[in-house]
Amino acid sequence: MSHARGTFDVTITPVPPVADAPAGAPGRMTLSKIFHGDIEGTAEGEMLATLVGQSGAYVALERVHGMVGDRAGSFALAHRGVMNEGAQELSISIVPGSGTGELAGISGTFHLTIEGGEHRYDLEYSLPTP
């Protein structure tokens, strides 16, 4: 497996609920990211989230466009996050078959850490030999 590491800036924008949304319905947000480091590019996506006290969950899909190392293309990421009374579990994976261009066939896992407000990533991935 190869690793791509760096940081990213993220903008999360709430989407207003539809007029007849039931009370307690998940919140919907758009995601916009700019990657720095071994991934140079952008991402756009959507997230659904719910939070009750110190517990909640979110799911998201996003498409990353740009360079991973020296290879250009795009791929999708699927997010699943659960928080139970403050204890967090997060899984972010490359969607199988979603790679395009020189990133066709990419597979792997996206590891995210937030330290001092800075979003850091470690993409653990594999690609077919060109």
Rank of each mutant, 00 (worst) to 15 (best):
A19K: 09
E44H: 10
A49Q: 15
A72E: 14
T50E: 15
F35V: 05
M67L: 13
G45R: 06
G24N: 04
G27S: 14
M29I: 00
R63G: 02
E40A: 13
T30D: 13
P17Q: 09
T50Q: 13
S55Y: 06
I34C: 04
G53Y: 05
G24H: 03
A21R: 03
V64P: 01
E44I: 10
I39Q: 08
H36N: 02
V15N: 05
G41W: 08
T42N: 12
G24F: 01
L31P: 02
G24S: 00
V64W: 04
F35N: 01
G73N: 09
M67E: 07
Y58T: 12
R71V: 04
G73S: 10
E44Y: 06
A23E: 11
M29K: 13
A60N: 11
P26W: 06
P26E: 11
L48E: 15
R28N: 02
G27H: 12
L48V: 15
V15P: 03
A19S: 14
H65A: 07
V15Y: 05
D20R: 00
G73H: 09
G66V: 00
Q54C: 07
G73T: 07
E46F: 05
Q54K: 15
P16H: 13
G66A: 01
A43V: 08
R28Q: 08
G69A: 02
P14V: 01
A72K: 12
G73E: 08
F35Y: 15
G45T: 09
M29D: 07
T50A: 15
H65L: 12
L61S: 10
T50I: 14
S55W: 09
T42F: 10
A72G: 03
G41L: 02
P17S: 15
H36E: 04
A43Q: 01
A57H: 11
V15G: 02
D20H: 01
G37Q: 09
R71M: 04
T30E: 14
D70S: 08
P16E: 10
A23L: 05
A21L: 04
T42W: 12
H36D: 08
A49L: 14
G41T: 11
F35K: 04
M67N: 08
R28A: 05
A21P: 01
A57W: 15
V68L: 00
R63Y: 13
M67T: 08
D70F: 01
G27K: 11
G27N: 12
G41Q: 07
H65W: 04
G37E: 07
G73C: 03
R63W: 14
L51D: 00
F35E: 00
T50D: 14
R28Y: 10
A19G: 06
G66P: 08
A25Q: 09
T42G: 05
T30C: 00
